[in-house]
Design a protein around this nucleic acid. Structure first.
Length: 1058
RNA sequence: GGGCCCGUAGCUUAGCCCGGUGGAGCGCACGGCUGAUAACCGUGAGGUCCUGCGUUCGAAUCGCAGCGGGCCCA
């Protein structure tokens, strides 16, 4: 039996009830099981990092995933959707260090790497559980029971196996690269872990003496004097102009300097030269023949052996001197110049920030102290042109705030640049939503792809499975746990994390002992292998064949350079093709101003706050509907409240007929839709057609990932078609108490629409859909699927679609709105009936719409008749009035103009118009008897409305409302006023709908009493009065007595329970 | 500095691909309805379509340049 719903929409109550229900029957698993054997759909969840809390962006991400997967499932797909977790990496190490009170890598070593790893694991698992609960509250259905986790052995094996593929395909390389380095923490740190802060540094100009031109120097500028000992080259821009300048000091000494022409004045001013003379100018590309002496060659023996030349580089800017100091061991750009030209990657600085023995006299000095010393040494040698300070933004270690340095270190690389062309052609094979996400944005990123540094000198990560022989340096890459056991001769029970795996040694072909290199993987490599790791490959092989590559992934646009890229790179290495077939790139959540949400700005909105206030379905409907997925979402509280209102209306629409259905014991299983067809009215056929059209539009929106269109179409249907129109039309039909086939038809149609609607909203508002479904379907059909989400997606029933009717209804609604407008103009409220409405249709279709839907229009406009004029014609009761044009009359009649105008206003406008239309002039008699001739330019015409008629335009033509009153109309109007007052009082007394009353009505106007008495019976039955006295001078008493003013007439009404 | 995306009423947005009178919702003002009622509905006011230039008979829409915002990079 259908249950009556009386309460307001209470999201919190409904959603927690539904969660209990889902958990109780294990709905998710049942839904997935139900589709086993259907078309396969492999979805890979981009694993969120286990930070412990989700934010609005992660919520949106998962909501998109959930809605698409629910839709797919209903469309009969067997879905594989393990949730994923990214659980390794420095952020967790840092959190754990904080908890343990550690400040450096040495603390970890003292605590024991094994203990530390255990803490990290524990922490990550805890965070994962917290976040799972938060996703749960959003109604996200993924495989949460068996998620893929990057810290699991099977997962680690997937990464190992991938690296082994790289080695076998000669795509793995060990080499020196420059990385961000924290000299205090003694570790490489990722770019995203560098914080930029304002800082004051030295700013020095240094002269490098040319070897073959005594007395000539090239001038460079730097803020890091400590890197001068590592200088190997100078870079200039090929197309800048450079000058050779004779610079003279105040004491008359002169020297020759080389720098960018545009900067000569500035630099010489800094060097306090008294005068200068340009000797020669040349392009940067002409400077490459120059060779200079390292300024500190006498202190650093190794530097004395290197050659130092000038090279060309596009990154050089016309700032400072236009000549850039290059130390390939201490800068990214510098390093590239070095590699390009085969220069030594000289890096005489150790991980602790102290110079190594390679630095000669600087050995063991910390770079922090070195700045001063280097400057001093340069000064002694007469090589310092100028010295000062500069305030600029500089990178700092995010956890200890130490300024970072750049160090060339030995790292492991995947040779992605060799795969670039293949990657680009793979991008074209993937379907991107939107198209430009792939063709423009991702393509651009991949075109700039460089070799991928996959090693980190940390603890909590997937250990790099490279073992190196301590004797012959040979390396072996281990691809699986089994291989490791076989090679090491161990029996098993091994843990693949550090430090356990570090203690495993292998025997080299040469007989030497092989030890694992100490590095762990960059965390981006972890998630990169997700598409096969989630299939437990290589541990299991058959699942890969069955599912891979992924049918669909979706993440935010920041993942262009992140997961979209890392997955593609790893997959090219492993399988030589893209790991996904289609990608939806979604946007970011911004605050209401369009600014990024960040803790420091204090504009972060927590999903839990929103859920607490409005519920998960509202949040879901809001983020899905407010913009296209790929556009950024400006989070607005007003808008979310608006969406909440829409859902509330849906709820009200749903519960509105239930009390009547329950009262009538309506059983939908007894009544087929077919059987009520003879009793359907046009509005019934119309709403059924609209419902089918909505399914179609949702389908076409979903096809292109336009979730916003899908949800908006649903909302519009609920608001416009159901709430504002259909429900308004059928209300009186549901109040009929007898067993009326007309009422049963309405019930059955509403039932049809609602049950379809529960399925249509299921992917987007899964809780509300379930709540409605349980009552509408499960309470009626005990053999129906347990959950709405187990149902098949509705297929539009073509036989119910009637596009003509939909179009006609649109026109009819437009007429009703126009009448509303006209009523307001003529001051006749809706409660008062009008005699007739005249519509002047512009075409046959409009006429047909009005004709066919006459009943609907009469009903909604409270009118007694609808009259159509001829198509394209005008209403024959309209009048015309002539409007004199003084601009044309004045010049012709001069002093008589006033008389002419006065006379024109008096003439018969219709006759005037006729005459002017066919002849040249109209003979007008003035008040003084004179006759003048009026030309067509002297007058214009305007339609005039009969008295008490107002007009308004609609898309079905101009609508005229005739508000003239007759006795019958007036009687009805006043009676309605009386009824409305009594009903209001019934409500105030909190009477039940079916309760009877006694009423006494005193009206202070005999004429109105007389009018109202015409409809005494109607009033009595409408207000359910057993005894009713209406009169001019009656005594009013009762349980509730009130005085009213109706259009200026006093009424005194008293009512009592019967 | 580069790539991509976004910029329409006070706010959130449709329309832009494929040129021809800019359309909603919220808010505001006025009104209606009163058996969905702490609900619902109508009418109205409100727009340099970011700016400038160009193409065109005609530009919110196409092109170029700039400004502002977002993501990514340098």
């Amino acid at each position: 039996m259908l249950k009556e719903i009386t309460g307001q929409y209470n999201a919190g109550e409904i959603e927690s009830k539904i969660h209990v229900f889902w958990d109780g029957i294990d709905a998710y698993s049942k839904v997935r099981q139900r589709r086993m054997g259907a078309k396969r759909f492999f979805f890979v969840d981009g694993p969120p990092y286990t930070t412990g809390h989700i934010h609005l962006g992660t919520a949106w991400n998962k909501i998109i995933k959930d809605s698409i997967l629910r839709y797919r499932s209903m469309n009969d797909y067997h879905i594989l959707d393990r949730a994923g977790w990214d659980m390794h990496g420095l952020p967790i190490e840092v959190k754990v260090e904080e908890v343990l009170g550690f400040t450096s890598k040495k603390d970890i070593e003292r605590y024991g790497v094994g203990n530390f790893i255990e803490k990290c694991k524990e922490f990550a698992l805890l965070q994962k559980d917290d976040m799972t609960r938060q996703f749960h509250s959003l109604g996200i259905w993924l495989n949460w029971k068996d998620p893929y986790m990057t810290l699991r052995d099977e997962y680690i094996e997937a990464a190992w196996w991938t690296l082994k593929q790289a080695q076998q395909k000669d795509l793995l390389e060990e080499g020196k690269r420059v990385v961000n380095w924290c000299p205090r923490c003694e570790t490489a740190i990722a770019d995203s872990e560098v914080e930029y802060e304002e800082r004051v540094d030295p700013s020095i100009y240094v002269k490098f003496r040319l070897k073959n031109e005594p007395g000539t120097s090239i001038v460079i500028w730097t803020t890091t004097p400590w890197t001068i000992p590592s200088n190997i080259a100078v870079a200039v821009h090929p197309s800048f102009e450079y000058s050779k300048v004779k610079a003279v000091t105040s004491s008359g000494e002169s020297e020759i300097l080389i720098m960018a022409s545009s900067l000569v004045k500035d630099v010489l001013k800094k060097g306090r030269y008294a005068d200068f003379k340009i000797l020669d100018t040349m392009l940067g590309e002409d400077l490459t023949t120059l060779e200079y002496e390292h300024p500190l060659a006498d202190q650093i023996p190794k530097q004395a052996r290197f050659r130092h030349n000038v090279y060309l580089a596009d990154f050089v800017t016309a700032e400072n001197t236009g000549c850039v100091h290059i130390a390939p061991g201490h800068g990214m750009d510098d390093f590239e110049v070095g590699v390009k030209h085969g220069l030594p990657i000289f890096c005489p600085v150790g991980p602790d920030g102290r110079y190594t023995e390679e630095a000669g006299e600087y050995t063991d000095m910390h770079i922090r102290e070195a700045n001063k010393v280097v400057v001093e040494n340069l000064k002694e040698r007469g090589l310092l042109l100028a010295e000062g300070t500069i305030s600029h933004r500089y990178g700092h270690c995010w956890r200890c705030k130490t300024p970072i340095i750049y160090l060339a270190t030995r790292q492991w690389f995947l040779k992605i640049s060799e795969l670039k062309e293949q990657m680009l052609s793979e991008i074209d094979k993937v379907v991107w939503y939107p198209e430009w996400a792939g063709s423009a944005r991702f393509r651009d990123w991949v075109e700039g792809a460089r070799d991928w540094c996959i090693s980190r000198q940390r603890y909590w990560g997937i250990p790099i499975p490279v073992w190196r022989c301590t004797e012959c340096e040979r390396i072996d890459v281990i691809g699986t746990k089994l291989e490791l056991l076989e090679r090491s001769g161990l029996a098993g029970g091994i843990e693949l994390h550090r430090p356990y795996v570090d203690s495993v040694t292998l025997t080299c072909e040469c007989g030497g002992k092989m030890r694992r290199v100490e590095d762990v993987f960059d965390v981006w490599f972890d998630s990169a292998v997700a598409s096969w790791a989630t299939l437990n490959f290589p541990h299991q092989k058959d699942e890969l064949e069955k599912w891979w590559p992924a049918d669909f992934i979706t993440e935010g646009h920041d993942q262009t350079r992140g997961w979209f890229y890392s997955q593609l790179g790893a997959s090219m290495v492993a399988f030589g093709r893209a790991p996904y077939k289609s990608v939806l790139m979604h946007g970011f959540t911004l605050d209401v101003e369009g600014k990024k949400m960040s803790k420091s700005l204090g504009n972060v909105v927590q999903p839990s706050e929103v859920i607490g206030k409005f519920g998960a379905d509202t949040l879901r409907a809001y983020v899905l509907s407010s913009s296209a997925p790929w556009e950024d979402l400006k989070f607005s509280n007003d808008e979310i409240a608006n969406v909440h209102r829409t859902i509330n209306i849906l709820w009200n629409v749903y519960r509105f007929p239930l009390p009547y259905m329950a009262l009538d014991a309506f059983d939908p299983s007894d009544v087929t839709l077919e059987s009520v067809k003879p009793h359907m009215r046009s509005e019934d056929r119309w709403i059924l057609s609209r419902m089918q059209s909505v399914i179609r539009s949702v389908d076409s929106a979903m096809e292109t990932c336009m979730l916003q269109k899908a949800v908006r179409n649903i909302n519009d249907f609920v608001l416009e078609d159901l709430s504002r129109w259909y429900i308004q039309l059928i209300r009186p039909r549901t109040w009929v108490e007898a067993d009326d086939p007309d009422k049963i038809a309405v019930y059955r149609v509403l039932y049809e629409v609602f049950t379809t609607l529960t399925k249509v909203i299921a992917p987007f508002m899964p809780h509300l859909a379930e709540e409605m479904y349980q009552n509408l379907v499960r309470n009626v059909y005990t053999d129906a699927p347990e959950s709405v989400h187990m149902n098949d997606w509705p297929v539009p029933d073509e036989s119910l679609i009637d596009m003509d009717l939909e179009q006609h209804m649109k026109l009819a609604r437009s007429v009703v709105e126009a009448v509303s407008n006209a009523r307001q103009k003529v001051g006749r409220k809706l409660r008062w009936p009008v005699g007739r409405i005249v519509v002047s249709p512009p075409d046959e279709n409009a006429a047909l719409a009005v004709k066919n839907l006459k009943e609907v229009i009469m009903d909604q406009t409270n009118s007694k008749d609808i009259v159509l004029t001829e198509v394209g014609g005008s209403w024959d009761e309209l009048g015309f009035s002539a409007i004199p044009n003084p601009g044309a009359i004045g010049p012709v009649f001069k002093g008589d103009a006033g008389k002419v105008i006065a006379a024109l206003k008096q003439v018969d406008a219709i006759a005037l118009k006729k005459k002017l239309a066919c002849s040249e002039g109209y003979e007008l008699q003035l008040a003084d008897g004179n006759i003048v001739t009026i030309g067509p330019d002297m007058v214009s015409f305007q339609e005039t409305l009969p008295e008490l008629v107002a007009s308004a335009s609609s898309s079905a033509g101009i609508v005229y409302v005739d508000a003239k009153l007759t006795r019958e109309l007036e009687a009805e109007g006043y009676s309605r006023e009386v009824i409305r007052r009594v009903q209001d009082m019934r409500k105030e007394m909190d009477l039940a709908v079916e309760e009877n009353i006694r009423a006494i009505i005193c009206i202070d106007d005999e004429r109105v009493v007389d009018l109202v008495l015409d409809l005494e019976q109607l009033i009595a039955s409408e207000v359910r009065a057993d005894v009713q006295i209406i009169g001019f001078d009656v005594e009013v008493h009762g349980d509730l007595v009130k005085d009213w003013d109706v259009e200026g007439i006093s009424m005194h009404i008293g009512i009592s329970r019967s």
